Simulated scan of single mutants.
Amino acid sequence: MNLACKIIASICFSQEIEMNRADLAYGTGPVVSSLDKVLSTFHVQRQAYHGKSFVGNHVHRCCTVEVIEALTAAPMKVMLENMTDDVPLAAHEQLLRESANIKKKYSDIFLKFADVHHGINHARAISPEEINQIDICIKEFLNSFRASFPSSNISPSLHLLEDHAVEQLRKFRVGFSLLNEQGGELIHTDFNRTGRVVHGMRDPLQRLMAVMRRHLVGTTPEVQTNIAKTSRKHEY
Rank of each mutant, 00 (worst) to 15 (best):
T194K: 15
E162D: 08
L71C: 06
K229Q: 09
H92K: 10
K229L: 04
V116H: 05
K77S: 14
K77N: 07
K105S: 06
L205T: 15
I8W: 15
C5T: 13
D163Q: 09
N82W: 02
I7Q: 03
V38L: 05
Q15L: 15
S14N: 11
I7Y: 01
I131G: 06
A25S: 09
C62N: 08
D36I: 07
H118M: 03
H159N: 08
L96M: 03
A165M: 11
E185D: 11
H159W: 00
K103C: 07
G184N: 09
L96S: 03
V87N: 04
G29K: 06
V65I: 10
P128I: 05
N143R: 07
K229Y: 03
V223L: 04
T220G: 01
R213H: 11
G56T: 08
I134L: 00
C62D: 11
L96P: 01
I109C: 03
R173G: 13
V217D: 05
D85C: 03
K105M: 01
T220N: 10
I68P: 05
R207C: 14
M201P: 13
E222I: 05
G183R: 01
L89D: 13
N20H: 11
V116C: 04
E129R: 07
A100M: 04
P204T: 12
A147C: 05
L161V: 05
G183W: 03
D135Q: 11
K52T: 08
L179I: 07
K6I: 06
L186D: 04
L208P: 14
G184R: 00
E98S: 09
N101V: 01
E16D: 13
Q15K: 12
H60S: 15
F141K: 06
R232C: 03
F176A: 01
L24T: 11
L95Q: 11
V38T: 07
R173W: 06
T28W: 10
E140M: 07
M83T: 05
I126S: 08
V223M: 01
I109E: 04
A228K: 08
R202T: 14
P150G: 08
E222L: 01
K104C: 04
N121W: 01
V78Y: 03
V65M: 08
K229P: 02
P88R: 14
Q45P: 06
D163T: 12
L208K: 15
D23L: 10
R124S: 00
S107K: 08
E162I: 02
N20L: 10
V211S: 15
S53T: 11
V217H: 04
S40Q: 14
A100F: 05
I11F: 13
E185P: 08
E235D: 01
N57D: 14
L89T: 12
Q182P: 00
F54N: 09
A25T: 09
V38M: 00
Q15V: 14
G119T: 02
V38G: 04
C137N: 13
N101Q: 04
F42E: 14
N192C: 14
Q224V: 02
S157T: 10
Y26T: 15
D23E: 12
